[in-house]
Amino acid sequence: MRLKLVPQETSFDFFNRWKLWLGISAIMVVVAFTSFLVQGLNYGIDFRGGTTIRTESAQPVEVAEYRAVLAELGLGDVIISEVFDPSFDENQHVAMVRIQAQDGAEAVTPETIAEVEAALRIAAPDIRFVSVESVGPKVSGELITTAILAVSLAIGAVLIYIWLRFEWQFALGAVAALVHDVVLTIGIFSELQIKFDLAIIAALLTIVGYSLNDTVVVFDRVRENLRKYKQKSLKDVLNLSINETLSRTVMTSVTTLLALISLFILGGDVIRGFVFAMIWGVIVGTYSSIFVASTILVYLGVKRDWSKPSNTGGNQYANIDA
């Protein structure tokens, strides 16, 4: 007996309430955007400069005490947070100390770090400093620019690829889904105030890749079915294609999520934010390839006859059956 998450034959009507789905997506995007504008992201030092120190000690972390000893140094904004992870030993207490970028210095000076370390030793004598990272404002500014450029480039490259292989309506649908996924991911990071650093940009780009993967598989089937069922309406063809690929969509999402969830639980706290972004991206990406990309395709309409070349859309690359 086989494990089947989705019955062999399905005939869900995905466009029955397409206005509702598109509406929900639109509202979510607006909420994400507002949250981003109002709260802003909790940028890590990669993007705003400053220093983070990861400490470890046998005694429990007394955040207030740490703060008190550091306040005397006059380093400006200092954020102290305790880190919890199931993989820690019983007497392994970890804290992250974040210090804002200091005026007049690019990276933090060794003297400042020595002062901070000495101060923290008063609060917890056996404290160890397992990592110290410092990024100057010059580099962090460039990293932001590069990050934005990377995400835009990825979306642009994908737009061109799909446009070459399919038609512009497909490209537009796919890119709308991508932007939807990226915005929602940024939104949840701003809403939950999870640290947003360079690794999250990598996660964003992976989400772009994954979400696209899903969308392309559906579109590929749509293109095939459009040639096969010339009489059916576009909506029906789309519905049929999504139903036919549904089993695969769910299978792949589940295997990917299985892998990611094990990494989320067991992979340690250092990459937890990164893995969280990807898990969220897989869920949102699967949703958007059905309810955003395809719905937009229904709305835009496509050229139906794929057997003849056309002047309006498509081109010589579209008919390469790989």
Binding site: E106, A107, V108, R128, F129, V130, S131, V132, E133, S134, V135, G136, K138, V139
Partner: peptide, 8 residues
Amino acid sequence: FLEERTIG
């Protein structure tokens, strides 16, 4: 030095 990181 624009950026420095120490990982234990």
